[in-house]
Amino acid sequence: MMQKILAPLTLALVMLFLIGPFAIIVAASFSAGDTLAFPPQGFSLKWIAKVFTVESFRQSFAMSLFLAIGGTIAALILGIPASYAMARYRLPGAETVRFMVSLPIIVPGIIVGLALLRYFVIPIGLSITLALFLAHTALILPYAVRVVSASLANLRSDMEEAAVLLGASRLGAFFSVVLPNIRGGILSAFILGFVTSFNQVPVSLFLSGPGVRTLPIDMLGYMEIVFDPSVAALSSLLAFLSIGIVFLAERFLGFSRYV
């Protein structure tokens, strides 16, 4: 049978294409040589170690971490009530709201970054950090709304009514009955938002200044100047971080149910 050979061959080639480059990056980060090359010249951990000593990486890592965590929390604070309103209330204009909050997924990030630079940072003097924070929050908002909406859709609304009839206030019912039951969805939204924000480049392209830039932008700048394996080492570290988080999330939350 042709198929017996063709199918595994196709799969092997496609996987090589998809995963291979990443494997090469990982291998290169353990190189002992001074330039980025494959096969790596010898084995060492020096490039992995170097990543931690580069001051700008440390700064931009902190910035990216702040944006990913802060932006996701802000997006959830805005997104959870909005999702709840759309799921539970007769809301005239619900479609408009849904469209508004999903815009940031449709509009290319580079345009958002540019628009914020041009109309907030330059004329008003909004700090770049704050602009980045707003941009990342806007970017994560659609994901937050989508994931939280999906988990609310699986939750029957009569549970809240039952809580109210047992004496809870509407708000009390939300916190005591709704929130515990959409915890998985919220955590999944958090992880999705975190990974999206952390890996995001276009939005942050124009929003960088002295000492203020996100990690991927910093990496882009670094590799234009220096051609050593430290960016590879950093990439590997970040990749394993992302994969680790998502893997744990899938293991304990059934992450993929919500995404």
């Binding site: 549970m159 109210v164 039951n181």
Partner: peptide, 27 residues
Amino acid sequence: ANRREVGLVFQSYALFPHLTVFENVAF
């Protein structure tokens, strides 16, 4: 609704799935 002293057993029962039987009744 929360001050009416009216009980309602929902068709779907509307139990709180994250709580035990005891905690549901104690709610």
